[in-house]
């Protein structure tokens, strides 16, 4: 069992000793049950830190922000940042290390094991609550979530409330950490790509209909991109607004802006945007599910990435986010890579 006091104790220690600049973790949100990211600088504030099955966010996205902020500072504070990660989030750190975006010494990792469960899906929870307001949620020893609501409790089997990705999780405890809280027993997942089965069994026409309906909704708010720790490019191929013109920028670079995708949120352009994003995440996405969670239109974005994760595993034996020293999916090959699709 993870004891949140252990987390607070360690956070307090590293802050007090000046080992880290600040600690990124979870704290109670202002509105309802769901927490929000916490940035704690003062050792006296560590009691704000919480840990429970609602801690869904992948906080590693803030490591990217930290790096960008630091790059702009004249005399940056070179101390590492403390960060609370789940198993999935830790895989994001592995990818960032693999891509040399951050260095291991830039982070002090407070790893938390999800043990045999995971985090909840807010939408699933809302369905169970049927309008009631949840005050607290806990896991009992029989594997049920016990939700306290006004005037009583609701008991729900864990799998009915867990996020889809947690049911398919292959890293239920962190891969990399400085401190690990909780049990290190590997969770058995029989079918890590089960959620794809239904989609894959559809006909090509049905799949097209499905994605047309879904992607037509996209308003191109780019929340998926903003929340993703892997989308750290300074300039996105689909978006040149924040393109930084520096002393190195040549005239041809400025002129050579390519409109691979139009900004208008119409289906054809939305398809290109989401396909490019999926390709750019191939072999990098670690299935934290944040893109799908933050999508205001409920587009099942995770499917796209999950599909390529599955193909990477099945075609090339590649697993993202486990080994920082191996070359990336698309910057490596094996002689025996399949080629039955080639004429």
């Amino acid at each position: 069992m993870v004891n949140v006091e252990d987390l607070r104790k360690e956070a307090k220690r590293i802050l007090k000793e000046g080992k880290v600049k600040y600690v990124i973790g979870y704290e109670r949100g202002q509105n309802g049950l769901m927490p929000k990211p916490a940035f704690i600088k003062d050792p006296e504030d560590v009691d704000r830190l919480i840990w429970n099955p609602t801690c869904v966010h992948n906080l590693t996205k803030f490591l990217v922000d930290e790096k960008k902020r630091k790059a702009g500072e004249k005399k940056p504070d070179e101390r590492p940042v403390g960060i609370v990660v789940k198993g999935c989030d830790s895989r994001a750190i592995i990818v960032l290390l693999q891509e040399k975006y951050i260095n291991r010494e830039d982070v002090h990792i407070l790893g938390i094991s999800c043990e045999q469960t995971g985090v909840i899906d807010e939408k699933k929870l809302a369905n169970k609550l049927k309008g009631k307001k949840a005050e607290n949620i806990e896991l009992d020893e029989k594997g049920n979530f016990v939700i306290s609501v006004q005037g009583g409790t609701i008991k729900v089997p864990a799998e009915e409330l867990l996020a889809e990705r947690c049911l398919e999780c292959r890293a239920n405890y962190p891969v990399v950490y400085d401190l690990l809280l909780g049990d290190k027993t590997k969770k058995k997942v029989e079918e890590p790509f089960k959620s794809l089965e239904k989609m894959e069994s559809l006909s090509e026409k049905e799949r097209w209909a499905f994605w047309t309906e879904q992607l037509a909704k996209c308003i191109r708010c780019y929340a998926c991109r903003s929340v993703c720790p892997m989308c750290y490019c300074d300039e996105c191929v689909v978006d040149t607004i924040n393109f930084a013109v520096t002393a190195d920028t040549t005239a041809s670079e400025k002129a050579g802006k390519i409109k691979w995708v139009e900004k208008s949120p119409v289906p054809s352009e939305n398809f290109v945007y989401h396909m490019v994003r999926a390709m750019h995440l191939a072999g990098r996405c670690i299935d934290c599910g944040e893109c799908e969670r933050v999508c205001p239109l409920d587009i099942p974005l995770r499917f796209l990435n999950k599909k390529l994760e599955k193909e990477a595993k099945e075609l090339f034996g590649y697993d993202a986010g486990f080994d920082p020293d191996e070359p990336s999916l698309v910057s490596s090959f094996k002689d025996e890579d399949p080629e039955d699709f080639i004429r």
Binding site: K205, F210, M279, E311, A312, F316, L329, S332, I342
Partner: peptide
């Protein structure tokens, strides 16, 4: 060899979103 791997992934993706597989070929 890098192309083979990259194109394999593109093909799977195009197929997944429902584009007719005949439309994209590698040789």
């Amino acid at each position: 060899y890098y192309a083979r791997r990259r194109i394999a992934i593109v093909k799977k993706l195009l197929d997944f979103i429902g584009l007719e597989p005949e439309r994209f070929q590698m040789s």
